[in-house]
């Protein structure tokens, strides 16, 4: 992306129907969104379909973006992430997106979220990171893996080898703590 153009500026132009701005927005953001989506759906061909769906939704809803609600990239990624989650949930009924035996795809890192790179992230992301780090290990792992890999309760049960009740209560506790932490 060029210096003269910001993502909010591009989103504004896209909201006004500017197709070339849309193309530049895509060029500037598609690798980030594809990274988010492919991590959740686990397959590149499926991710490509979700990516297309996501950018068409961005075209439709660019006018809904509000700077006070967060960064443009977080807003766009939220659209992609939600669509990836819907796709992952839908596909899972019939076909495993990960291992043939149905076990969730595991990241190589032992610690959930160890491969995330927060260094270049914006202020909202750094605050989220700080709050995630302040959680106890169980809730933190559940929430980070759900956020990044798109795991359901059941997948977290397998991944963490913990009872369903424990996973559910970790998530509830973690989300409650996160809300308090982010409100400060």
């Amino acid at each position: 992306m060029g210096n003269a153009e910001t993502l909010d500026g591009l989103l504004g132009a896209v909201a006004a129907g500017d197709q070339s701005a849309f193309q530049r927005l895509y060029a500037a953001t598609s690798a980030k969104l594809f990274g988010v989506i492919v991590r959740i759906v686990g397959r590149r061909d499926v991710a490509e379909e979700v990516l297309q769906d996501t950018y068409l939704a961005i075209w439709d809803h660019a006018g809904d973006f509000r700077t006070e609600r967060g960064s443009p990239i977080a807003w766009m990624a939220a659209i992609g992430r939600n669509r990836a989650l819907n796709r992952r949930r839908g596909e899972r009924e019939t076909v495993s997106l990960d291992d043939p035996d149905g076990a969730p795809m595991l990241a190589d890192d032992a610690v959930a979220g160890a491969d995330l790179d927060w260094a270049g992230a914006g202020a909202d992301a750094r605050r989220l990171h700080g709050c995630l780090e302040s959680l106890e290990e169980g809730p933190r792992s559940c929430i980070v893996m759900a956020l990044v890999e798109g795991y359901t309760h059941q997948e977290l049960v397998k991944r963490l080898d913990c009872p369903l009740g424990t996973v559910k209560s970790w998530i509830r506790r973690g989300l409650s703590r996160l809300k308090d932490c982010l409100a400060v």
Partner: peptide
């Protein structure tokens, strides 16, 4: 909640689409 949690995307690695 979307505004709270979505910034995680900024920490997820880029992958160039086809």
């Amino acid at each position: 909640w979307s505004a709270k949690l979505s910034p995680v995307a900024e920490a997820v690695g880029d992958v160039a689409p086809p």
